[in-house]
Amino acid sequence: MRRPLRRTSALNVVLLLYWLCCLAPSPVSSIIVTTPPEVHASKGDTVTLSCSFTSTSRPTSRMTVDWSYRPQSGGPPMMFLHFSSRAYPPTEGQFGGRIRWQGTPARGDASISLINATLNDNGTFTCTVRNPPDVHGSTTSHTVLTVTPRVPSIRFSDVAVLLFFILLPSAVITLILIGRMMCPKKERNQSKAHRSPIEVTEGDEYGIPGYTHKEDRAKCCDLYVMDSDEEYYLKDFKKRPPEAEGYADSHC
């Protein structure tokens, strides 16, 4: 009588362990999908929305990928791409003709590209991957896309043109003004001293008014303000032989 009881107890233990194994979560039936939390782009850029997944089961023809979009203003998510053996990008709507499949499921990649991003594309993009029997776990992941207006950039050639046509003339004008300040024009005395009609000083007899022997060496500033006629007479006077100082004979 005791042997049948022992066999029944052993059978019950085996059945209990079997049911526990069936009810326990299996590590095989889990999948993890990963996407970047945020992506920033400028208006008109081509944006890559990355999506990778890890699965203990080899991807088969039953694996599916779904991409959905939820606007920044809110509202229900809208699925715009489905992958099952091949990709089915949208042909109309907000993303019509602007989505390209970039994924390689055999390598755990389910990424897409968004062409010519606009400010209306701001929102949350969700990647969902199912790979039976791995249908449990973290099958979805979200990415927030932020598109900003493009800032005009200045090229190096534009900067060089600005430096050449603006800064260079300004520097030349500044140097000219500094030169005039360092070498001002000699103020001429309009009131001349009264002299006798027959009194002739050295230099007047050669046609150079106001020239004296003590002014043989002209300064830089004097040459700067000297007229062309005065320069000619000055050179002619230096070529002539010196004469005794004094008064010239009157021709009256």
Rank of each mutant, 00 (worst) to 15 (best):
V13R: 15
S61D: 09
F53I: 06
E230R: 15
W101R: 02
L177R: 06
V14K: 06
S29D: 15
V225C: 14
M1F: 11
H251C: 12
V65P: 06
D249P: 14
S29T: 06
Y18Q: 09
S50T: 15
S52M: 03
A248D: 11
P242C: 06
I154T: 09
P242T: 08
H142P: 00
P132M: 05
D66N: 13
T143K: 08
T140I: 00
A160S: 12
G44V: 03
T139D: 13
L49Q: 08
A117H: 02
L17F: 11
V47C: 10
T60R: 13
E202Q: 05
S138M: 05
L145N: 04
G207I: 14
P105W: 08
C127G: 03
I32D: 11
V28C: 05
E38R: 14
T56V: 15
H40K: 14
S73L: 09
V144P: 01
H40E: 11
S157Q: 15
Q102F: 11
E243D: 02
L81K: 09
D158W: 13
P77D: 05
C183D: 03
T201E: 02
K185D: 14
P71V: 02
Y211E: 02
A117E: 00
A41R: 06
T148W: 01
I178Y: 10
E215C: 03
I178K: 09
R58M: 04
L223H: 13
A244T: 13
K192S: 15
R240Q: 10
H40I: 00
V172C: 06
S141N: 04
G108Y: 05
S9M: 09
N122W: 08
I154Y: 06
T174Y: 11
W101I: 02
N12S: 14
R217A: 08
I32C: 04
P76I: 09
R100E: 10
T54H: 05
C51N: 04
P37M: 05
S85E: 12
T35K: 03
P90V: 03
P59S: 01
E231D: 06
C183F: 11
T118V: 02
K185R: 15
I31D: 01
Y69L: 00
L177P: 01
Y232K: 13
C51S: 03
F237Q: 05
P71A: 07
V159Q: 12
E230S: 14
D134V: 05
V39G: 02
R130V: 12
A160Y: 02
L145G: 03
A110V: 03
K238P: 01
E245P: 07
P133H: 00
D134A: 13
A87M: 05
S250P: 08
F95T: 10
A10S: 08
M79N: 12
G123S: 01
S9L: 13
Y18N: 05
H82E: 05
G246W: 07
I178R: 05
F95P: 10
V28M: 10
V161D: 02
R70M: 12
T48A: 12
S29Y: 12
E243F: 07
I176S: 06
A248W: 09
K214Y: 05
P209S: 08
L23C: 07
P133A: 01
S170P: 00
Q102Y: 07
A193H: 01
G207M: 06
V13D: 07
